[in-house]
Amino acid sequence: MNWQAVYAMYSFEMARFFRTITQSFVSPVISTSLYFVVFGSAIGSRIQEVDGVSYGAFIVPGLIMLTVMTQALSNASFGIYFPKFIGTIYELLSAPVNFIEIVIGYVGAAATKSMFIGLVILGTSALFVDLKIQAPLAMLAFLVLTCLSFSLMGFIIGIWAGNFEQLQLVPLLVVTPLVFLGGSFYSISMLPPFWQTVTLFNPVVYLISGFRWSFFGIADVPIGISLLAISAFTVICIGIIWWIFKTGWRIRS
């Protein structure tokens, strides 16, 4: 392994993030606060409690997941699309690095960034509502796995995208709806039975449910299935990336 190269890619990407640190943090903090105002106060005044948890606290895990997933996706896809777009990818292709090292460097940086933002939102939320985290280790594990798997998926999108529109397309048309319909702001049990069944085909449901369980000990689906789902998702993404580098698809002419 060329760890020197992994470190070089990782720190180069992180430096980009820290250069714009204010933007990176201010925007999620503001949008989190807005969610609390809109969902927590407006809707929360009608829905008192969900499964014995105050509505304001109930939406915190979903809110963190929502932001972390979109941030991981956009950071990772942009991170690898940008070198392709401006041509600096020549350096990665001609360097003595293999795909595992490139993925650790780029996906690792994107995952770290989204993890940071997730923790900032957690901190911001604590200012608005009383939070107790029942299983902190499980919470961290879910957070890390989500950052990782969505960064992997973002990496794939960044390699696939041929222009900026395509770069936005998958997050906008596929991921955002799945995340919003994945129970970020409600419990699945609040839906009519038919939609409950439909929802179970949404992979995001398993992530949010598992993550929420680590806070409150309540879940829409069993925790084991949640862990299995996110692990399977991660493995599938790694498989696709392995294939991309093996064939040189969309990177090596």
Partner: peptide, 14 residues
């Protein structure tokens, strides 16, 4: 400087 450092690192040099 950062750009040049990145290149050196990518090629596995300390």
């Amino acid at each position: 400087m950062n750009s040049v450092r990145l290149s050196r690192g990518l090629f596995g040099k300390p």
